[in-house]
Design a protein around this nucleic acid. Structure first.
Lengths: 197, 197
DNA sequence: CGGCTTGCTGAGCAACGCTCAACAAGCTAC
DNA sequence: GTAGCTTGTTGAGCGTTGCTCAGCAAGCCG
């Protein structure tokens, strides 16, 4: 069953950095198919062609490993979403929204795995997820030139939950055109955020 | 550590139904403190004063056990939220919303555990959660006397995500009065749902 | 008392997270 | 070239946990 997929591997020696990134990379590859918590150390090690022990050399605990993987996934997504340096103010939020929808369309399963995994019991993973959301809110509020106070932050965070859910189900069953979806999301955000004005 | 809390128990013999409900009950009690997936069979069995094996007699697998617990939690919440038989049409949605906020205020941790656990990797638990949301949407749409078509359903579901998130963070840090919160939620729902009219 | 159903247990297996002592690949120094 | 150091790497093994199975025993009937 769990036979030897990498048998001809002459078992080379790698630098510490290389191994770490290789292991995280493997985690990212496995993430779409496996709920991150159920990722077994054995499977990852086997796929990397190394012993279980070595993985524990790099990541003291299983949790430490998959939070590293989660963090890498989050970083990857953020890089994709954040507006490019020269983008004009008023295009930043629409741009991010557009790229977000594109992201979900492209990486549907992986993204779901990330979002789902976020809620999934483990506080460390949830924390990474929360950090990501917070950073996105900050960017959005500055782009909209709005003060970053607690009430507005709550609203925008909740709107994120709204957008995440809607885009997710829309990707499954597109009841709107892509443009209608984007317009709807923007509209709801505007109304929410301009409320106290 | 995991010593014997029920030592004077003369280990009585119970009916099948009794045991089942007792075990589910224990699960419900442990749910607020422990992410449901991490609930160990040993702990539950110990708390019930029975052997591991017996638990597997009633629930063939661990998953089967905690989905039963999750389902019980969902049922409990639904009973609390659904409008009483005689409620007038136009009060039903506001009433449910009001009770929902009350629910979160009262059972903050348990509820979070339920919602979080829902996303948490396990498809079976997610399914129970999804069923619950679907039922609530049905009730809401009939109460609002609106047709139950796919687009509207998606919108209301997404609005749920919005409400869940907002009420959750509001309970942590009430930046609005309770009435303002309720009004906001109702207003957003109305605008969303009347969109296509 | 014998026999039946059925709630219940203990021993034990396999998988998995994790530890630890030791090996060996690749480098530098003499 | 070989001695010696660093450090990437491993195998054996322990404790926990999900799960199985053969069999015990509590209550009931004839």
């Amino acid at each position: 069953m769990t036979a030897s997929p990498p048998p001809p591997m002459p078992r080379s020696r790698r630098s510490a950095g290389d191994r770490r990134t290789q292991l995280v990379q493997i985690g990212l590859e496995l993430l779409p198919t496996t709920p991150i918590q159920e990722l077994t150390i054995d499977a990852v090690a086997a796929r990397a062609g190394i012993s279980r022990s070595l993985l524990f050399h790099y990541f003291a605990t299983k949790r430490e490993y998959y939070t590293a993987v989660t963090r890498a996934a989050a970083e990857f997504m953020l890089e994709h979403l954040l507006p490019p340096p020269g983008a004009p103010q008023e295009d930043q939020v629409p741009g991010m929204l557009d790229r977000y929808v594109g992201w979900v369309e492209a990486f549907r399963e992986s993204h779901l795995a990330f979002v789902r995994g976020a809620g999934g019991g483990d506080p460390w993973v949830a924390e990474v997820y929360e950090e990501t959301r917070q950073r996105l809110v900050e960017v959005a509020l500055t782009a909209l030139q709005l003060p970053d106070d607690a009430p507005r932050r709550q609203l925008v965070l909740a709107w994120f939950a709204f957008a995440e859910d809607l885009v997710g189900s829309w990707a499954d069953e597109p009841t709107l055109t892509r443009e209608e979806l984007l317009a709807l999301l923007r509209d709801v955000l505007d109304r929410l955020v301009l409320r106290g004005r």
